[in-house]
Design a protein around this nucleic acid. Structure first.
Lengths: 361, 361
DNA sequence: CTGTTAGCGCTTTCAA
DNA sequence: TTGAAAGCGCTAACAG
């Protein structure tokens, strides 16, 4: 990896000081005289010395590396989460290991182990579906701080940073109710995921709170993908089509949208569609879709800050418990929704500003 | 980071062998008897020992870490590149540092330095716009292998893995020419990027090769974003609208598409639009857009394999030069194109299979 | 096949 | 403020 590496000793000799002086300069200790400091720094640059953090980390048993494990980096929301983490860890002088697990628990175990062996100071995890609390025991035994991000494992006792799934689904429902919809379905998502459970919960609560008819609203689980959305739509159609659907995420919403058109129906007119998980508007895959937008970058940044704080606390033995955080979401109204065909408005009245534009491909 | 870490010595004692025996077991040396091996492995598990790769790496001066620096992880194409790299590095027992530079050269310098200090064995780089060869001098001086991915810095003498931009643009042009288009523009992209230059080159060559009218075809540079596409469209329109455009990437294509509709025009009928850089169809942001599809995952995997090979060679002093690789692309025809309005077909005749469906939002 | 002896490059007492 | 010595956890020669 290195040929005749230049070390602190070389720098010390060249600068005419001792190695510990160099070491102190390297870490910006205030107990070094200005001229000495400058001389050393000059020599460092001159010799092209590069600091070896492995050695430092080994000796001091503390590193400036965090682990970041993402179940699906191809999902733009999680890519944005990762970038959020990256921005703060970079700013704080950390680097990160980043691995994608493709939602595979075993692969996740492997990368976590590898990261631990390489001396991470803490871990941010978007857990693979099916992760159990005990899967993280090795880390906890080592005293490494962990923060879950974007997703969370139930009753694991591990802090998490997520967006407000419940409130998001509720906002979608309230919006549709105001338009006059009475028959609203929830579509997509895997039943054993906590995210799904929370979104469904918000969905049901809001239906109840807005005094929707008392018959149980349809909830159709499906793979959280475009294909899953298509299948769920077919299933819904075989039963009885509602006038509106809230989708587990944007991929599902696009699937529903597509299936709808295949069936010769018209979005908004025949079925109002609300998505979820939309990334920043500018990057949205679906600029016309009404959606519950989450601020993925903020989630990532928050997770990183929590983790770094926990790392700092751990060395100070301050032992402050890290608290979980739930970040707000907002409903972005675009023209995939309309009042139901035979309207029975509760209050309704919405801007049609956006509705003139035709959908993009 | 660790409290009373369990070390090889502990394992050795517990298993009644010497530390070097443990070390050999750890690395799966064949020169250890089966029973001993098992006994040691058992103790390792029992004690919850975790291998410290920093120490190993320090001593052996070789690591199992690669650096991966991406100029824009929010671009789905580059996210997929990263996942491609991840899959092979994971399979080969490597972990990666991954950082996003937001196309900022200085930020890139910082993360590369940090990675080097942390002992990477090599670097895969999607260089920030404006990177100069000398920005990588520190790495080269240290003898670290580098592979560029998805993009490349001109005349840097550093191997790269990219898709075939020239052939892709040419394929798009040929397709449009066959439909009968004579006035075709190229839209979007930054003039000083090599990717842009190659795409424009393929564009021009194909126009020439297909015997297009000899007046110079319009090339409108613009930010490679949706906004850039919109602006470019306006500019094009102020001059004179061609019958077809080849776009620098899908974001630009979507921008053109949107602007087109804003202007009350109809895609395909009034202007045929071809995109570029489309990710795997299933994830495509634009399921209706005719596009030059690149296999981002393959690019990532190839880059990773090249790098790992270079790393292996470097230690063996085999010193094999790594060669750059250009991967094929393919044109995916969907219904954003049609013959020009007053058709003067050269050969024309295309499937309309897909054209029945309306665009998605 | 196993044990012993030196370090990898750094931080960290502890004196000076 | 600076210098000397010890050692983080591991691997790399060797010698047995």
């Amino acid at each position: 990896m290195a040929r005749d590496r230049i070390t602190v000793v070389d720098v010390a000799e060249a600068a005419g000081v001792s190695r510990s002086t160099v070491s102190l300069v390297l870490r910006g200790s205030p107990s070094i005289s200005r001229p000495t400091q400058e001389r050393v720094l000059a020599k460092i640059k001159e010799l092209g010395y590069v600091y070896d953090r492995r050695a430092a980390s080994l000796r001091a048993s503390k590193s400036h590396i965090v682990g970041l494990v993402i179940h699906d980096l191809l999902n733009p929301v999680f890519a944005e989460l990762a970038v959020g983490v990256d921005s703060v860890s970079q700013a704080e002088g950390y680097v990160q290991f980043l691995s994608h697990t493709a939602d595979d628990v075993q692969r996740q175990q492997e990368v976590i182990t590898m990261m631990q062996e390489n001396g991470i100071a803490g871990l941010i995890l978007s857990p693979a579906h099916g992760t159990r609390p005990r899967d993280l025991d090795a880390l906890r035994r080592a005293g490494l701080p962990i923060v879950q991000m974007g997703r969370s494992v139930a009753r694991a006792g591990i802090p998490y940073v997520v967006s407000d799934n419940r409130a998001g689904a509720a906002a979608a429902v309230r919006y549709l109710r105001e338009l006059g919809h009475e028959e609203i379905a929830f579509v997509g998502g895997l039943t054993d995921s906590r995210t799904f459970q929370e979104r469904v919960r918000g969905f049901r609560e809001a239906l109840h709170d807005t005094g929707a008819p008392d018959r149980p609203a349809p909830v159709i689980p499906a793979e959280p993908s475009r294909a899953g959305g298509g299948e769920a739509f077919e299933q819904l159609r075989r039963q009885r089509l509602p006038t509106a659907v809230v989708c587990f995420n944007d991929a599902v919403a696009l699937g529903v949208y597509g299936a709808l058109r295949e069936a010769g129906l018209e979005p908004a007119r025949d079925l109002s569609v609300v998505g979820f998980d939309d990334v920043a508007e500018a990057r949205s895959a679906s600029p016309q879709l009404t959606t519950v937008a989450i601020d993925a970058s903020a989630v990532g940044q928050t997770a990183a800050r929590l983790l770094l704080r926990a790392i700092a606390d751990a060395s100070h033995t301050t032992k402050s418990r890290v608290r979980s955080v739930t970040l707000p979401v907002r409903l972005v109204v675009r023209h995939s929704c309309a009042p139901p065909r035979s309207p029975m408005r509760l209050s309704g009245s919405r801007s049609t500003r956006d509705r003139a534009r035709a959908p993009l491909p």
